[in-house]
Nucleic acid binder design. Structure first.
Length: 425
DNA sequence: TCTGGGGTCCTAGGACCC
DNA sequence: TCTGGGGTCCTAGGACCC
């Protein structure tokens, strides 16, 4: 059996790069992209990073810095990023036999047994050149015998420009050299909490974690961390998943642009989330039996009284009909709603999924009746809304949506809306 | 005044069963 | 007086990821 070889391809500063692509005037200017509601910084161009703009900071805390350095800020434009992502991924699929799309800006490639006459590094460079040429987005490539090492190789490629954006970590000595240079918190799967606990045990570098006894790690932590130790030693424990597993839950939630104090507005918001979630559910070709509704005040405010609550229910049988979930969500909301709070966020969650027609009703349950007309109605709605934007919706979603999110610095839908195509002058 | 959204997996502990 | 032990299932909460 040949040893596995993985490549991790990761787009550089993806959201910021997408925005720059359509604004050549900003080519070497600092750019940041903001979260929903223009709340925090979620992406930074390399110029913005250099100016000390940190990831995840609330915008109001860095407003002065943004202004001082004339940093250009964009509201997040997920329609644009998703479209660009798809283009990058299909380019990658043309270059490698098996591709796992891991996130909007990253993919693992399976290079096991790939005949590389020119060598793995040259293959990585070829990936870089092709994506740059076809899409105009810069990527870095990390190559290694396990996914966790490929992640680290990619990190190295990003951190040290001298690498030319490609790091091949198939050789053991190179692995150990890199591991010794990196703090343990850089390792995929080791977050803030684990970093602290590991440091207390004297494990501060990635190499020290790699050299730890897996049994000891299993006792003090979990199987997950044990697996990470093995992966760091080049033993592949996490397989490539080139077919996306079916989802186990679908969440739709959002912080409001303005605090909600009015129940009618909350009904609109919950209706909106339900219809988004159900649409996703139908896209997945699934039906759900479990519904949760939650709402909360801001956890950051010390002036507002805190309130956070959620309630769930099970449907008698799985469904993907928006109307069924709307009615039930309104019932849940009635039992959750308390007057007098300033609500900051709410959401819904669907879970317990079934393939249509695969649900086994209980012995004494009513037999299932699925009306074809109901399914047709939902299909029609999805088709219309996909084609022409949001044209058909339920009255309960409201038409004004005053609580909707702030996106004051939104870029145009360059690639997904004919009206907003860029114009060459 | 202003702090994202959407996922996954694992563990501990309680309920329940024999 | 003395009140088992082991297994399974479910859920809530915690940790991680991008």
């Amino acid at each position: 059996m040949t040893n596995p070889v993985f490549a991790l391809v990761d787009c550089n500063n993806f959201y910021a790069s997408c925005e720059k692509l359509f604004r050549p005037d900003l080519a070497d200017k600092p750019v940041v992209v903001l979260s929903n509601n223009d709340g925090c910084i979620i992406a930074r161009s390399k110029e913005a990073k250099k100016l000390g703009i940190k990831m995840g900071l609330p915008v109001f805390q860095v407003r002065d810095l943004l202004q001082k350095h004339q940093i250009v800020a964009f509201s997040s434009n997920y329609a644009l990023y998703a479209d660009m992502s798809q283009r990058v991924m299909s380019t990658l699929e043309s270059l490698a036999p098996r591709v796992e799309v891991y996130s909007i800006d990253e993919a693992f490639l399976d290079l096991t047994g790939v005949a590389c006459s020119q060598g793995l590094t040259e293959f990585g460079l070829e990936v870089r050149r092709t994506v740059q040429k076809h899409i105009g987005i810069a990527v870095c490539v990390g190559i290694a015998p396990s996914k966790t090492l490929a992640k680290l190789a990619n990190h190295a490629a990003k951190t040290w420009p001298k690498t030319g954006g490609v790091v091949d970590l198939t050789r053991k000595e190179r692995q150990r050299k890199l591991l010794s240079l990196l703090p343990v918190g850089e390792v995929w799967g080791i977050g803030g909490k684990l970093t602290k606990r590991l440091e207390q045990l004297g494990i501060t570098t990635a190499l020290q974690l790699a050299d730890a006894d897996p049994k000891f790690i299993r006792q003090h932590f979990s199987v997950v961390v044990e697996r990470t130790v093995r992966e760091l030693n080049g033993e592949s424990c996490i397989a490539l998943e080139d077919v996306a597993p079916t989802k186990k839950q679908i969440i739709s939630s959002r912080a409001f642009g303005e605090r909600i104090t009015d129940k009618q507005q909350m009904r609109e918001a919950i209706s909106e989330y339900i219809s988004r979630a159900c649409k996703k559910l139908r896209q997945e070709q699934q039906q759900a039996k479990h519904l949760t509704v939650f709402l909360r005040t801001s956890p950051f405010s010390d002036k507002d009284a805190p309130y956070s609550a959620s309630k769930s229910l099970e449907l008698d049988s799985p469904s993907s009909d928006t109307r069924v979930f709307l009615a039930n969500a309104m019932r849940l909301l009635d039992s959750l709603w308390v007057n007098g709070y300033r609500y900051a966020k709410a959401g819904v969650m669907l879970a317990d999924f079934y393939d249509p027609g695969m649900y086994q009703p209980g012995l004494f349950d009513e037999p299932l009746v699925v009306k074809e007309s109901d399914q047709k109605l939902m299909q029609l709605m999805d088709t219309l809304n996909n084609k022409h934007g949001k044209t058909l919706w339920f009255a309960s979603q409201g038409s004004e949506q005053e609580w909707g999110m702030k996106r004051e610095m939104l870029s145009p839908a360059y690639t997904t809306n004919w009206q907003e195509l860029p114009v060459a002058k």
